[in-house]
């Protein structure tokens, strides 16, 4: 569970304000908004990379507002997946456990189990540079899930994928839905509606409260629907 209260982050020429944001245990909450509205600032803020001017971030009952990123229990999957090119896929996934000084046998067992679950077992010895976009995403997800995070933070995880791979990626995210608290940042309304238990809309640095997807679609994302209608009528659908 993650709860954000009265959070203000000030950067040069930009202020992020979050009055109240909550993702309950194992809930899948979407942060939706156009580019440049402050989604990434929110991600980096709750992950601990930007210092807030005020406010509180609570994860599973613990105030983490001023804790460093490594002590928050948040795992990030960034837009470009952030795989480390000097390590194999296995080493990428094992790294968070090695940092925690888990013994090698247990690391091997955990990596194997997760790799089987995400269907990447055959990729373990490969270099990240030899992976396709979809494979890279699976590996990034496995690396994040290996620590059993309290919150999984997905920052535009499918935006660098082609449409076919994106569909498979959505299936993968559906698969993990319900097993971990997810905060998923996207500008794609389809992704938001397919995955989100709740959707919070980010607009000019202000994050609204997470709401029921249908309510958000009707009241706050109607312009997307209008655009889609207009586009489909243009091509005669």
């Amino acid at each position: 569970m993650i709860k954000v209260e009265d959070l203000v982050i000030e950067l040069k020429g930009f202020t992020l304000k979050v009055e109240e944001f909550e993702a309950k245990r194992n809930e899948y909450v979407i942060i939706m908004g156009a580019s440049g509205t402050g989604k990434s600032v929110f991600v980096e803020g709750i992950a601990g990379f930007l210092k807030p001017k005020r406010g509180r971030i609570v994860i599973d009952g613990k105030d983490v507002t001023y804790l460093p990123p490594e002590k928050r229990g948040i795992a990030i999957v960034p837009q470009d997946h952030g795989l480390w090119p000097h390590m194999s896929v296995y080493e990428n996934i094992a790294f968070p456990l090695r940092i925690r000084k888990v013994n090698e046998n247990e690391i091997r067992r955990n990596v194997k189990e997760l790799a089987e679950r995400l269907n990447i077992e055959h990729l373990l010895n490969r270099s990240p540079s030899k992976l396709s976009g979809g494979e890279r995403q699976r590996v990034a997800l496995a690396r994040a899930l290996i620590i059993r995070p309290q919150v999984l933070l997905l920052d535009e995880p499918t935006s660098s994928l082609d449409p076919k791979t994106r569909k498979a990626a959505l299936e993968l995210l559906k698969m993990i839905k319900g097993s971990v608290t997810v905060v998923h940042v996207t500008h794609n309304p389809y992704e938001a509606l397919v995955l989100g238990d709740k959707i919070a809309v980010m607009n000019r640095g202000r994050l609204g409260r997470p709401k029921d997807p249908r309510e958000v679609l009707l009241n706050e994302l109607s312009y997307y629907v209008d655009e889609i209608r207009e586009a489909t009528s243009l091509i005669g659908l």
């Binding site: 980096e44 460093p68 960034p78 952030g82 795989l83 940092i99």
Partner: peptide, 16 residues
């Protein structure tokens, strides 16, 4: 180095 490479490492438990 992409910023994400370091952010991910920190979020997954590595100190600075």
């Amino acid at each position: 180095i992409p910023r994400s490479a370091e952010l991910v490492a920190r979020s997954l438990g590595a100190s600075k």
